[in-house]
Simulated assay, not measured.
Amino acid sequence: MSGTVSHAELMDSTYRYQRLIYDVTRRYYLLGRDRLVRDLAPPPGGRVLEIGCGTGRNLARIAAQYPECALFGLDISQEMLRSARSKLGAHATLVRADACDFDGTALFGAGGFDRVVLSYSLSMIPDWHRALHMAAAQLAPGGELHVLDFGDQSHLPRGFRHLLQAWLARFHVTPRVDLHAHMQAVAAKQGQKLRFQSLYRDYARYGVLSRPL
């Protein structure tokens, strides 16, 4: 895919050292991640994939809450995967791959996942529309895609919103303010159902696509 190498290099450069403090600093503004983990509720023995797994923070919490599940993660940044592998050990299978162009069966074996997670990752993926379609296509019958990311913070104080967006831009993060519309389009195209809500005065948005059995 055009641009894949340059984006991978950008992410490695951005997080080569940031990964060492990522979990400590991001806990204050990547809101809703623990709620997502609680809401996953995968079936016993289910397969859970996180796309853009970063340092493995979410997968570690999923492993703790659903120890019977098989966990998988991919990220375009080798630097972030270094942290994830250190954190997760044998609890998850991790690979370097592009969220916009991958084959889940070829990477991880078997077909389809019971739960797929995109947590604050679409806002860092240039071709995020394609990544969203790819993620939804990985679902097994009865599976769910859980997407959590920044809203436009339109109901928060203007000064706070401007400071936050300036901070996010330093790390190549762009809130996807039309996420709802694109998740609706994916649902219609792939025959899935959508649940969607705004969180924390539109600080974040949370959507769940469900594939019928």
Score class of each variant (00 low, 15 high):
Met1Trp: 05
Ser2Gly: 10
Gly3Lys: 04
Thr4Gln: 12
Ser6Phe: 01
Ala8Gly: 12
Glu9Ile: 11
Glu9Phe: 09
Leu10Ser: 04
Asp12Tyr: 07
Ser13Asp: 14
Tyr17Leu: 10
Arg19Glu: 02
Ile21Pro: 01
Ile21Val: 13
Asp23Tyr: 06
Thr25Gly: 02
Tyr28Lys: 04
Tyr29Lys: 00
Asp34Tyr: 02
Arg35Pro: 00
Arg38Val: 04
Ala41Trp: 01
Pro43Gly: 02
Pro44Arg: 12
Leu49Trp: 13
Ile51Pro: 02
Gly52Leu: 09
Gly54Leu: 03
Gly54Ser: 09
Gly54Pro: 11
Thr55Trp: 03
Gly56Tyr: 04
Ala60Asp: 07
Ala64Ile: 02
Gln65Arg: 15
Pro67Gly: 04
Glu68Cys: 11
Glu68Lys: 12
Cys69Asp: 11
Ala70Phe: 11
Asp75Cys: 03
Ile76Arg: 01
Ile76Leu: 14
Ser77Ile: 07
Met80Leu: 14
Ser83Gln: 13
Ser86Glu: 14
Lys87Met: 06
His91Gln: 15
Thr93Ala: 10
Thr93Met: 13
Arg96Asn: 10
Ala97Met: 09
Phe102Asp: 06
Phe102Gln: 03
Asp103Asn: 13
Thr105Arg: 11
Thr105Met: 11
Leu107Val: 12
Gly112Lys: 04
Phe113Cys: 05
Asp114Glu: 05
Leu118Cys: 12
Ser123Thr: 14
Pro126Met: 09
Pro126Trp: 11
Asp127Cys: 04
Trp128Lys: 10
His129Phe: 03
Leu132Gln: 08
His133Arg: 15
His133Asn: 10
Ala137Asn: 08
Gln138Met: 13
Gln138Val: 05
Leu139Trp: 08
Ala140Pro: 07
His146Gly: 07
Asp149Phe: 02
Phe150Ile: 03
Asp152Leu: 00
Gln153Leu: 14
Gln153Asp: 06
Ser154His: 08
Leu156Lys: 05
Leu164Pro: 02
Ala166Phe: 03
Arg170Tyr: 05
Arg170His: 12
Phe171Asp: 14
Phe171Trp: 12
His172Ile: 11
Pro175His: 14
Val177Thr: 15
Val177His: 09
Ala181Trp: 12
Met183Phe: 07
Val186Asp: 05
Val186Arg: 00
Ala187Phe: 01
Lys189Glu: 15
Gly191Thr: 05
Lys193Asn: 10
Arg195Glu: 15
Phe196Ala: 12
Gln197Glu: 13
Ser198Cys: 07
Leu199Cys: 13
Leu199His: 03
Leu199Pro: 03
Arg201Tyr: 07
Arg201Gln: 13
Asp202Thr: 09
Asp202Phe: 06
Tyr203Gln: 02
Ala204Phe: 00
Gly207His: 01
Arg211Asn: 04
Pro212His: 11
